[in-house]
Design a protein around this nucleic acid. Structure first.
Length: 828
DNA sequence: GCAAGGTC
C-alpha cells in the first residue's frame, strides 16, 4: 500500500481525484478523511499536527523566573491527536510514503513532522517528497512522476523560527505580565510579529499627537467657456520652480484674492492634452484581496473568513497565497465560458470572450510556488442559497477581479489648461474616460471624470466666483486594517496566513480599539518598554535577520544550533537590562492599564472615574477613590464599553460607546445619561429603602431604550424591576394588595397585556426562569456561563440567536467563535 | 495561561 500525505483535507481529496481519475472513495478514520483507490491511500493533515512547547515543569508562571525559559529545553508534542493517530495506523501498513505538503518553507516543516511520525512506526518504508504549486492535473502528474526528497535543511530553517519565536515571545511575555501583576486572562504579550505591528500603530499615533498644524490658504475661481463654467485653482511657482497651490502667508493669499477678484477675464497661456493608459489590476494574492474587500466594507477578518468558506465549498481557489501570477495551464477562454449565460456574471464574461485580441492575463511582481493567485474555479454558487449576500459580494469581487486581469486597459484623456488673470495663474486639470476597458467588468474603482472644455491658447475666458479658502495641514491618518496588512507585507512581517490574525490578536489583547485601530495607553507603554529594553522585539529587523538566518540554514551555511544559540545569547543580554528595571517597567504598565479605563474626574470627590467590572461580569463606572468614595454610574447591560476620545463639555468625562456587534451604539457621557434617565410616573414606595431613606419607585427609560421600574435614589439605591422594551405602559387604578403598587397594562399590538403589579410580575418571571432556564440552554454546548456571555451581546433567546450575524457576535463576545455560533444556529 | 505558523 502506498500512502500520500498532504497539508490539508481539501488537497488530499483533489489529489486523490486527479491520480485516481475520480475513482477514489472516501472513508473516515478517527474523524479524518482517507481517500483510497487501487492500492493507494491519501490523507490530509491540518497544517501543523505537532507543536513546540516547554516541558511541564516550566508551566507555572510564578514558579519560574522568565529568564529561565531562555535556556529551557523545548519539546514537540502532538496537537492534533486524532490525525497523528490515524497517520500512525496508515504508516504501519504503508510500503511507500509520499509527502505532498504545500510547496513552501512551512510546508517543508509540516512534511518533516509527518516524516517523523511515519518513521517512528515504520523504520524502513521509503519516504519521498513531491512539490507542485497548483493542484492541476499536469502539475500533479509531473510532480508524482519525478519524486524528490524532503529538504531537511529547509525544514530546520522553519524549526529555528519556531524556537526563536517561542523563546522570545514566552520569556518576554511572562516578564512583562509578572512585572505588572497581570496574570490570568489579561497577560501582556509581545512577539516578533505582533510587536512590530503594534509599533507601526503606536508610532503613527505619536506622530498624530505631536502634530502641530500650519495654516494655509487656497484660492479657486470659475472660468467660463461657451456659458459652461469649470473650476480652476490658483498656483504659483515655488523656489524650486514647482507649481504650488498652498499659500502659506495670509497677506499673500489676500493679495492674490484681491487681484483675482478684480479680474474679469483670464487669458489661456497653456493647453496640454495627453492620453494615459490605465492598466488593469494584477491577480489577487491574499493581501490585495483583503485590500479590495476592505474597499467595499469588509474587515480583514471577515473577508478572510468568507474567502475560506468559498474555498472550502469549491467556488474559489485557496485564499492564502503570495502569488500574483496565474499558472500556465489556466485557460482564460475555458474559465470565462463557465460564466456565460449567468444572469449577473454572464454578460461581462461574454464581452471578454468577444474581444478581438487574445486574452492575456496581467501578472504581478510576486511569483511564488505556494499556491496560485485567488480566482474563481468556475463552479458558481447560487445567490441566496449556497451563499448569503455578503458571501456573494465577496465571490463577485473575486470573479470580477479575474475578469479585470484578462480585460483591456482603460484609456483616459487628460487636459491641463493654464490661464493668466492680472498676473495670477489659474489651472484646471480635466480628465475623461474615453475607453472604459477593464472598468466595464470591474466596477470597484472610481472612474469619475472632471470636465474641462477644449480651449485655445490666447483665448479669453470670463472669471467669476473667486474663493479664498483658509485651511490647515492635517495630521497623518491612522492606518486602516488593510493598509496595515499591506505594510506588514512590505516589511516582511507575518505571513499571508497570519497577518489578519495578528490584527485580531492586538484587538483581543487590549492593545488596539476601534476601526481604524487606535492604540490604548497599555499599547503605548508596552512599545515604550520594549523600545527601551528589548528593541529587537518591536523592530521589523528581527524578522529580516531571522529570514537571513533561515536562508543560511536552508543553504547549509549555518545550522539550526548556530542560529538559535546566537539568538538566545541576545535574549540573555536583553534580560540583564530588563531585570534591573523590573519595578519601573511594572509601574509604567500598571499606570497605563488604569489610564485606559479612566473617564475623567469624579463629581463627588475629584478622583478618577473608571470603567469597572462587577463580580457578575457587568460593566459600571466607579470611582478610583473607592472605598472612600462610593460614587457609581450605570452602563447599559448590552455590549462591551469602549471609551471614546470625545469628552463631555459639561462633566469633562469621556463618552462611552457600547460594542455589541450590530447593536453597537454610542451611550455618550454616562453622567449626562444618568441625569437624563427619563423618570416617568411615581408608582409607590421603594421596598428596599423607602422606609429608611424615602426612596420611591418610578418608571424609567434608559438611554439604551430599555425600561425599568427603579428607585428615585439611584445610584444610591439600585433596586429595579424589568419592563418590556416595546409598547405603551398604562398605569391603572387597580392596586396590588401585597405590594401596594398599581397594576400595569402594556399596549402593543391588538391584545393589551395585563402585566399587573411589577413586583408580582417579576417574581413570576423569576419562577418561570428557574423552572426552565433560558431557552438557549436547550442547545447542545450552551451552558449558564455562555448564556450570560450571549446576553451581554444582546442575545437572550433562540430567536435572537438565529437572527444574529455570527461574525459580529463573535467580535463582541470573548471566547466564542463565529463557527461555534454557526453550529448552534444550524442546531436550532 | 506565553509566540507564530499551519488549518477549520
Amino acid at each position: 500500500m502506498e500512502l500520500i500525505i498532504t497539508e490539508k483535507d481539501n488537497a488530499a481529496r483533489r489529489i486523490a481525484d486527479i491520480l485516481s481519475g475520480e475513482s477514489a472513495t472516501a472513508t473516515r478514520e478517527n474523524g479524518v478523511n482517507v481517500y483510497e483507490w487501487g492500492g493507494k491511500r491519501c490523507v490530509g493533515l491540518s497544517g501543523h499536527v505537532v507543536g513546540v512547547d516547554f516541558p511541564s515543569e516550566y508551566a507555572d508562571w510564578r514558579d519560574v523566573e522568565p529568564v529561565e525559559l531562555v535556556d529551557a529545553s523545548i519539546e514537540k508534542t502532538p496537537t492534533k491527536e486524532n490525525i497523528v493517530a490515524t497517520l500512525r495506523i496508515l504508516s504501519r501498513q504503508a510500503e511507500r510514503v509520499t509527502i505532498a505538503t504545500d510547496y513552501d518553507r512551512e510546508g517543508e516543516l509540516i512534511g518533516k513532522e509527518a516524516y517523523e511520525i511515519v518513521r517512528d512506526v515504520n523504520e524502513d518504508v521509503p519516504i519521498d517528497r513531491v512539490r507542485f504549486s497548483s493542484i492541476t492535473k499536469n502539475e500533479v502528474q509531473r510532480a508524482f512522476d519525478e519524486p524528490d526528497e524532503i529538504d531537511f535543511d529547509l525544514a530546520a530553517a522553519g524549526e529555528a523560527r519556531q524556537i526563536i519565536d517561542l523563546v522570545w515571545g514566552a520569556a518576554l511575555t511572562r516578564f512583562l505580565s509578572l512585572s505588572a501583576g497581570q496574570l490570568g486572562n489579561d497577560f501582556i504579550s509581545v512577539g516578533r510579529v505582533q510587536s512590530p505591528t503594534l509599533k507601526l500603530i503606536v508610532d503613527r499615533e505619536r506622530e498624530i499627537q505631536a502634530f502641530d498644524p500650519d495654516d494655509y490658504w487656497e484660492l479657486f475661481a470659475d472660468l467660463t467657456k461657451d456659458d459652461e463654467p469649470f473650476e480652476a485653482q490658483y498656483f504659483y511657482l515655488d523656489e524650486d520652480d514647482n507649481e504650488a497651490e498652498r499659500v502659506w502667508d495670509e497677506a499673500a493669499a489676500t493679495e492674490a484674492y484681491e487681484t483675482l477678484a478684480s479680474a474679469s477675464r483670464a487669458t489661456v497661456t497653456e493647453v496640454k492634452g495627453r492620453t494615459r493608459t490605465d492598466s488593469p489590476p494584477t491577480p489577487f494574492n491574499t493581501t490585495q484581496f483583503i485590500r479590495a474587500a476592505g474597499a467595499i466594507g469588509f474587515s480583514a477578518k471577515r473577508a478572510m473568513s468568507i474567502a475560506e468558506d468559498l474555498y472550502t465549498d469549491g467556488f474559489i481557489t485557496y485564499p492564502r497565497t503570495d502569488n500574483t501570477v496565474y499558472p500556465d495551464d489556466l485557460e482564460p477562454e475555458d474559465l470565462l465560458d463557465s460564466f456565460v449565460g449567468h444572469p449577473e456574471l454572464g454578460e461581462s464574461a461574454q464581452s471578454l470572450l468577444e474581444s478581438e485580441d487574445d486574452l492575456v492575463p496581467t501578472e504581478g511582481d510576486e511569483e511564488t510556488t505556494d499556491h496560485p493567485p485567488i480566482y474563481p474555479t468556475g463552479e458558481i454558487p447560487t445567490r441566496g442559497s449556497d451563499v448569503n449576500e455578503d458571501e456573494w459580494r465577496v465571490y463577485e469581487l473575486v470573479v470580477r477581479r479575474y475578469y479585470a486581469t484578462v480585460a483591456e486597459p482603460a484609456i483616459w484623456e487628460h487636459l491641463k489648461v493654464v490661464a493668466d488673470a492680472n498676473g495670477c495663474s489659474l489651472k484646471a486639470n480635466g480628465k475623461r474616460l474615453v475607453d472604459p476597458g477593464y472598468h466595464e467588468v470591474y466596477p470597484y474603482f472610481s472612474t469619475s471624470e472632471n470636465y474641462v472644455p477644449a480651449v485655445d491658447e490666447g483665448e479669453k475666458l470670463a472669471v467669476s466666483d473667486v474663493e479664498l479658502e483658509a485651511k490647515q495641514t492635517q495630521p497623518p491618518r491612522r492606518y486602516g486594517q488593510s493598509r496595515l496588512i499591506e505594510t506588514m507585507e512590505d516589511l516582511g512581517i507575518g505571513t499571508k496566513s497570519t497577518r489578519h490574525n495578528t490584527l485580531e490578536k492586538l484587538y483581543d489583547r487590549g492593545y488596539i480599539e476601534n476601526d481604524p485601530p487606535r492604540p490604548t495607553q497599555l499599547a503605548m507603554a508596552v512599545v515604550d518598554a520594549a523600545e527601551q529594553y528589548a528593541d529587537q522585539v518591536v523592530s521589523e529587523e528581527m524578522t529580516a535577520q531571522l529570514e537571513a538566518d533561515m536562508d543560511a540554514i536552508a543553504t547549509g551555511e549555518a545550522t539550526l544550533e548556530d542560529v538559535t544559540d546566537e539568538s538566545r545569547e541576545m535574549l540573555e543580554a536583553v534580560f540583564e537590562q530588563l531585570e534591573a528595571s523590573r519595578e519601573e517597567i511594572g509601574d509604567h504598565l500598571r499606570k497605563s492599564l488604569k489610564a485606559d479605563k479612566q473617564l475623567g474626574p469624579c463629581p463627588e470627590c475629584g478622583e478618577s472615574l473608571l470603567v469597572r467590572r462587577s463580580r457578575y461580569g457587568s460593566y459600571f463606572v466607579g470611582c478610583d477613590g473607592y472605598p472612600d468614595c462610593e460614587f457609581t454610574l450605570q452602563l447599559p447591560s448590552t455590549g462591551k464599553p469602549l471609551i471614546l476620545e470625545e469628552t463631555c463639555d459639561e462633566h469633562d468625562l469621556h463618552e462611552v460607546k457600547m460594542l455589541a456587534g450590530r447593536q453597537t451604539f454610542v451611550h455618550g457621557c454616562p453622567l449626562c445619561r444618568a441625569e437624563e434617565a427619563g423618570e416617568g410616573p411615581i408608582l409607590g414606595t421603594c421596598p428596599e429603602c423607602g422606609d429608611d431613606e424615602g426612596g420611591e419607585l418610578a418608571i424609567k427609560t434608559l438611554q439604551s431604550g430599555s425600561r425599568l421600574v427603579g428607585c428615585t435614589r439611584y445610584p444610591d439605591c439600585e433596586y429595579s424591576l424589568p419592563l418590556p422594551r416595546r409598547g405603551e405602559i398604562e398605569v391603572t387604578d387597580e392596586t396590588c394588595d401585597e405590594h401596594d403598587l398599581p397594576e400595569l397594562v402594556i399596549h402593543n399590538g391588538d391584545e393589551p397585556w395585563e402585566l399587573g403589579c411589577p413586583i408580582c410580575n417579576y417574581r413570576e418571571f423569576q419562577a418561570r426562569e428557574a423552572e426552565s432556564g433560558s431557552d438557549l440552554e436547550a442547545i447542545d454546548g450552551i451552558g449558564a456561563k455562555t448564556v450570560e456571555k450571549l446576553a451581554a451581546a444582546g442575545i437572550e433567546s433562540i430567536d435572537d440567536l438565529t437572527e444574529a450575524d455570527p461574525e459580529s457576535v463573535a467580535d463582541s463576545v470573548d471566547g466564542i467563535s463565529a463557527d461555534r455560533i454557526r453550529t448552534w444556529q444550524t442546531a436550532t
